[in-house]
Design a protein around this nucleic acid. Structure first.
Length: 421
RNA sequence: GUGGGCGUAGCUCAAGGGUAGAGCACCAGGUUGUGGUCCUGGGGGUUGUGGGUUCGAAUCCCAUCGCUCACCCCA
């Protein structure tokens, strides 16, 4: 096979794309009810945006970005995530003016140069949402309510929401210091990767899966013990809001994030049915990012849902998929009825009836087979005999019954049988 | 970037040195113009690619590409 898609990307074909349609439709519907407005942003940005927002030392920036020089000599990067772009747009268009809570979402592809595996692709799609301008814990809770509602609408009730607080600039440094000291004392027990993480981003040791590090983690200090009063209070309120509306969450004191900009509330939704890449959704608060990128001090919180991973969990039998099944199939018999068929198909479609047809002149038997496979409710058989007296045969496929219908009332008759207005 | 597994028909897979097969799918027929079940027949593969060993390679060896899973990272 000489023509192939690029490694790590894939086509979403008819048959699967209907699941995507349901996910996107549900998300859009819920965003409206939660007051989020859609925003469309470019898929590439100046490279510096990502370096500044994600953190120079993150893996994404150091080895996973699709970065290239454009014809004008600028360094461009295909977005590895959406938050940076959304913050950029927020600042660029002065969306902080007038001061208010601004809630936006976007849906689209992200790009990361990683080794592909189950649930990990080089181009993958995310649903992204951000709420700018409030540090009220109710906003945090609301986001988790949204995620919960979306998952339930998609009949996903076996996912676990993990929640933690990462503290802020007041308390996190103290914790990082303590953790670093703890890890340095046990340096020889750590794996090679974690040894390096001590200096780069010590909290990521909690992500390590090596048995030795796992044991060490148990004894390590957790961020919760070091949170300042304001962060404790904030976190408590988030939890209280969630409890009030019965949103179940699993507190995970060791939950950390790979991106530098997160503060305070952090969460992740994971599935036991996925492989190593088990996070369907991840997000959290990033109260310092807008200012760090040159905007006014603006608290904000957001999240991203991985659509491929979400779709892979869906049970199609529980979802209203639109397979595009025709309501009516047109079969023709004999010479010279093609034009009539074309005209009738046009009239039916003008009445918003889904019509399909076999275009090749094949035997009626073959056409009926195609009609059957199409799962059309009715088949309209246009034959010379009936056409000669201004009529056609309408066959109810499930009932295996058929009747003759006059051509001049065809559209009305068919609409009546399909129970259309 | 590192390691494991796998590449045979559209799909799922057999054949493990001696003519490349099955199921499903597809096409046609089973008397004039009727689908699903059934019966009969048919089309379809330079066995990922390139080398090597051999009288003979899908099968053994080497390389290469691809897919896949895991590490890593994260959605």
């Amino acid at each position: 096979m000489s023509l192939r898609a690029v490694r790590g990307v894939k086509d979403i074909l008819p048959g699967e794309v209907e699941l995507w349609e349901v996910v996107e439709a549900e998300a859009r519907r819920l965003f409206k009810t939660f007051g989020y407005a859609e925003i469309k942003i470019p898929v590439f940005e100046h490279t510096s945006l990502f370096a500044r927002s994600l953190g120079e030392t993150t893996d994404i920036v150091q080895k996973e970005m699709y970065t290239f020089e454009d014809r004008g000599g600028d360094s461009i990067t295909l977005r590895p995530e959406a938050t940076a772009s959304l913050v950029r747009a927020y600042i660029e268009h002065n969306l902080f003016h007038p001061p208010r809570l601004l809630k936006v979402f976007t849906i689209g592809p992200m790009f990361r140069y990683e080794r592909p595996q189950a649930g990990r692709f080089r181009q993958f799609y995310q649903v992204n949402a951000e709420a700018f301008g409030s540090d009220n814990p109710a906003v945090d809770a609301e986001i988790l309510v949204f995620v919960d509602k979306l998952l339930r609408a998609l009949h996903l009730d076996d996912l676990e929401v993990r929640l933690n607080s990462l503290g802020d600039e007041a308390c996190r440094p103290r914790y990082t210091e303590a953790l670093t000291a703890f890890l340095q004392r046990r340096r020889d027990a750590l794996c090679e990767d974690c040894d390096q993480r001590i200096d780069l981003n010590p909290m990521r040791v909690f992500d390590c899966k090596t048995p030795g590090c796992q044991e060490l983690k148990e004894a390590a200090p957790t961020i919760g013990e070091y949170l300042c009063e304001a962060c404790v209070d904030h976190f408590e309120q988030v939890k209280a809001h969630l409890a009030r509306v019965d949103i179940p969450v699993h507190l995970d004191p060791q939950l950390v994030r790979g991106l530098d900009y997160y503060t305070r509330t952090t969460f992740e939704v994971v599935s036991a049915r996925l492989g190593a890449q088990d996070a369907v959704c991840g997000g959290g608060r990033y109260d310092g990012l807008v200012e760090a990128l040159g905007g006014p001090p603006t608290p904000a919180i957001g999240f991203a849902i991985g659509i491929e991973r979400l779709v892979s969990l869906l049970d199609r039998s529980r979802l209203p998929l639109d397979e595009g099944t025709p309501q009516l199939f047109i079969a023709t018999v004999g010479e010279g009825v093609d034009e009539v068929a074309f005209e009738i198909m046009h009239a039916l479609r003008s009445a918003s009836i889904r019509v399909e047809r076999e275009y090749e002149s094949r035997s009626l038997k073959a056409q009926m087979k195609v009609a059957d496979r199409s799962k059309a409710q009715y088949t309209l058989i246009l034959g010379g005999d009936e056409l000669a007296r201004g009529a056609a045969l309408l066959r109810n496929m499930a009932a295996s019954s058929q009747e003759e219908i006059a051509l001049d009332s065809l559209v009305e008759e068919i609409k009546a049988r399909l129970a259309l207005p």
